[in-house]
Design a binder for these strands. Structure first.
Length: 414
RNA sequence: GUGGCUGUAGCUCAGUUGGUUAGAGCGCCUGGUUGUGGUCCAGGAGGCCGGGGGUUCAAGUCCCCUCAGCCACCCCA
């Protein structure tokens, strides 16, 4: 900590950045509520065990990216790297089994100790949704449709592609995994170092490799569709059919893999070319095994999470705020009247910027800087006639308005 | 965790083969205007040249270390 600077990979959100952030979470929330989802907020840290058990011991997140520390009571705690585990834990410890289906959304910071780059920070924010307790493919469809609606409401849907895949059920996964390991083991000396490592840790990941040599081998690798059980295939067909029904476009990408162990069946990502290497803007899938793994009753679930910083890079500026009215009081009596008026006008719903000191010139300068619509001047002259001078800051025109008429007069400047 | 690029004023950036007091534009402040912003004119403030060490008579400039940012790998939102 040589200097007073933010911790690596963290960022302050100031002004327009903070506003864009709130706007994204706000529109996501509006859409989610239209789908009948409600808010849920779980703690930012949990017992380390919560993440270890849910994310799987082989995932990168658990093995090298968690912010884990011991608290004063000697417990091992971890800053949440993602949101689903906390929701699942709350589902179990809060006894929410009787309230199925549980439909919730959340929003907040997540923490992962990664090397920062574009679209990747150590503290970042996600908006996510979970639909727990519905095993039917219609749940997958609904949740994906909501994601598309949110991206659309943010004006970025057309810049993204929905990539869809199925990981199948447990028997499908096992058979396919075995087939892949067999196929790639024979070619092991031709694989990249990374992929050789993946072969033991997470063979499915090889399919996603960017290495040119790997890609050539992948082309002839076994096809998952040949290893799917009938049930898994039927489920995936139903999801695709549902998406067609609600008019959500997608492309099949058989190489989409989830990094976290708890996923099965549907896996999807909304990706974009606009963000460089970190092109995934929203991703999720079905996690029917998760809650049971954590020691709860066997319960189905689907959900996704979106990266707010990544979305913000695509949406640009937040929608404009209503322009303010600037109140400038001159002299003791004028300042007092300006203060009184600020309260009255705000209660009437106007956005009011009160000038605290510095006289007329500074007041107008300030008004100009915040792009106010009008300035109201109140000095001894005005007070003497029970009026105020209202200056339109675009045209420069000034009119005399009785103080009692100000509220109505200014409503036009909103 | 690995590799590449980059750190000079609040911001964007110049700074010659190492050579006197480190510059510009924008922004900010003051005045021109005792009650009139945005334009214009005049003036002003603001820099451990990311930090530490080294080479040299001399380092913003060369070397090493370190921190941070960016880009890619990896991973993922």
């Amino acid at each position: 900590m040589a200097k007073l600077q933010p911790v690596r990979g963290t960022h302050d959100l100031i002004g327009d950045d903070a506003r864009a952030h709130l706007a994204i979470a706000g529109t996501a929330r509006e859409v989610a509520e239209r789908y009948g989802f409600g808010p849920m907020a779980t703690p930012i840290f949990e017992f380390t065990e919560v993440f270890k058990r849910t994310l799987g011991d082989t995932s990168d997140i658990v093995t090298k990216e968690m912010y884990t520390f011991e608290d004063k009571g000697g417990d091992s705690l971890t800053l949440r790297p993602e949101g689903t585990a906390g929701v699942a834990r709350a589902f179990i410890s809060g006894g929410l089994q009787n309230e199925l289906p549980l439909k919730c959304f959340y929003h907040g910071p997540m923490f992962r100790h990664e090397r920062p780059q574009k679209g990747r920070q150590r503290q970042f924010h996600q908006f996510g949704v979970e639909l727990i307790g519905v095993a039917e493919p219609s749940a997958d469809v609904e949740v994906i449709a909501m994601a598309a609606d949110i991206l659309d409401a943010l004006g970025v849907l057309s810049e993204t592609t929905l990539e869809l895949n199925t990981l199948g059920d447990a028997p499908s996964k096992e058979r396919y995994r075995a087939a892949l390991v067999e196929y790639f083991s024979d070619l092991s000396d031709k694989l990249s170092d990374d992929s050789r490592d993946r072969l033991v840790r997470n063979p499915l990941r090889i399919l996603d490799s960017k290495d040119a040599g790997d890609r050539a081998l992948i082309a002839d690798a076994p096809d998952f569709d040949d290893y799917m059980t009938e049930e898994a295939a039927a489920f995936f067909a139903a999801v695709q059919d549902g998406l067609d029904t609600v008019g959500v476009a997608y492309t099949r990408n058989p190489h989409i893999v989830r990094g976290l162990d708890y996923y099965s069946h549907t896996a999807f990502e909304f990706t974009t070319e606009a963000l460089g290497a970190q092109g995934t803007v929203l991703a999720g899938g079905r996690y029917d095994g998760l809650i049971e793994t954590m020691g709860g009753p066997k319960t189905a679930g689907v959900g996704w999470a979106a990266g707010i910083e990544r979305l913000a890079m695509m949406t640009g500026e937040a929608p404009a705020l209503p322009r303010a009215i600037t109140l400038i009081g001159l002299g003791d009596a004028g300042e007092r009247e300006a203060l009184r008026l600020s309260s009255e006008l705000r209660h009437a719903g106007l956005t009011v910027e009160l000038i605290y000191k510095g006289g007329l010139k500074r007041g107008l300068k300030r008004a100009d800087r915040i792009h106010a619509a009008a300035a109201v001047l109140i000095g001894d002259d005005e007070l003497a006639r029970g009026a105020a001078t209202v200056r339109d800051l675009d045209s420069g025109e000034q009119v005399d308005v009785a103080i009692t008429d100000l509220k109505d007069h200014l409503a036009a400047h909103r």
